[in-house]
C-alpha cells in the first residue's frame, strides 16, 4: 500500500480544518450579531423589559457556531483517518 502522507502532516491539516470550521462560523455569527446587538441595545434603552427577548434574538446566530464546533469535534476526534495509513 502507498503512503499518503506522514501522520504528523495529516493530523496538522485536520487541526487547521477544525480550526477554520469553528473560526469562520464564529466570524459569521459575529457579523450577524453586530446589527442585532446594536438594535437590541437601542430597544432596551427605551424598553428595559425587552432585555430577555432581545438576548434570545442575539443568541440565534450563536447557534451557527455550534455547527462549526460540531464539525471541528468530528474532525478531531470522531473521524480517524489514521486507520487507512500504513506507516512503513
Amino acid at each position: 500500500m502507498v503512503v499518503v502522507a506522514d501522520a504528523g502532516t495529516l493530523y496538522g491539516l485536520l487541526a487547521v480544518g477544525a480550526g477554520l470550521a469553528t473560526g469562520l462560523a464564529g466570524i459569521g455569527a459575529g457579523m450577524g450579531e453586530q446589527g442585532i446587538g446594536a438594535a437590541v441595545v437601542g430597544v432596551v434603552a427605551e424598553e428595559p423589559g425587552f432585555l430577555g427577548k432581545g438576548l434570545f434574538l442575539m443568541l440565534l446566530p450563536e447557534t451557527l457556531i455550534i455547527f462549526g464546533l460540531a464539525v471541528s469535534l468530528i474532525l478531531m476526534f470522531a473521524w480517524t483517518p489514521f486507520s487507512g495509513i500504513v506507516t512503513p
Partner: peptide, 17 residues
C-alpha cells in the same frame, strides 16, 4: 446599514409610546 441598527431599534421602541 449596520450603522442604522441602533437608532432604528430605538425609534421602533419609541414609536410604541
Amino acid at each position: 446599514p449596520v450603522k442604522y441598527a441602533y437608532i432604528t431599534g430605538r425609534v421602533r421602541a419609541m414609536k410604541t409610546k
